[in-house]
Amino acid sequence: MEIQIIAFGIAKDILGNSQFTLELPSEATVSDLKVKLTEQFPEFAKLASLSVAVNTSYAKDDQPLQPEDEVAIIPPVSGG
């Protein structure tokens, strides 16, 4: 299945683009997505923590993904 990825902040820099599509097996979860991203982009593993939103709602690692889902990769934010 094809998933639309939107990346923000340092995640965008690591993934090389702010938007792209990624092919995942059917029955994939958010956790499977993270593994796939780490396989394709080894620097992705360096993100100590990040949030994932599926179709504008924050998602846990065990959430199943559906074809045509839009997934946002949101790295930790700091500032003052």
Rank of each mutant, 00 (worst) to 15 (best):
E2K: 13
I3H: 03
Q4L: 13
I5T: 03
I5W: 01
I5Y: 03
I6N: 05
I6C: 04
I6W: 07
I6D: 02
I6F: 11
A7F: 01
F8K: 02
G9P: 03
G9D: 01
A11Q: 00
A11K: 02
A11N: 04
K12A: 09
D13N: 12
D13E: 14
I14M: 02
L15Q: 02
L15G: 00
G16D: 02
G16M: 03
N17C: 01
N17H: 01
S18V: 00
S18G: 12
S18F: 08
S18I: 00
Q19K: 11
F20A: 09
F20E: 06
L22W: 02
L22M: 13
P25H: 12
S26E: 15
S26V: 13
E27F: 14
A28P: 08
K34A: 10
K34P: 09
V35A: 06
V35W: 10
V35T: 15
K36L: 13
K36E: 15
L37G: 02
E39I: 11
P42A: 10
P42M: 05
E43Y: 07
E43W: 05
F44T: 01
A45F: 10
A45S: 15
K46M: 08
L47T: 02
A48R: 13
S49A: 12
L50T: 10
S51I: 07
S51Q: 10
S51N: 12
V52G: 08
A53M: 12
A53V: 09
A53I: 04
A53R: 11
V54E: 12
V54T: 06
N55C: 02
N55H: 10
T56H: 10
A59V: 10
K60I: 04
K60M: 13
D61K: 15
D62C: 00
D62L: 07
Q63Y: 13
P64W: 12
P67A: 12
P67M: 07
D69A: 11
E70T: 11
E70K: 15
E70D: 06
E70F: 02
V71A: 08
I73W: 02
I74A: 04
I74K: 01
P75H: 02
P76E: 08
S78F: 04
S78Y: 04
G79P: 10
G80V: 06
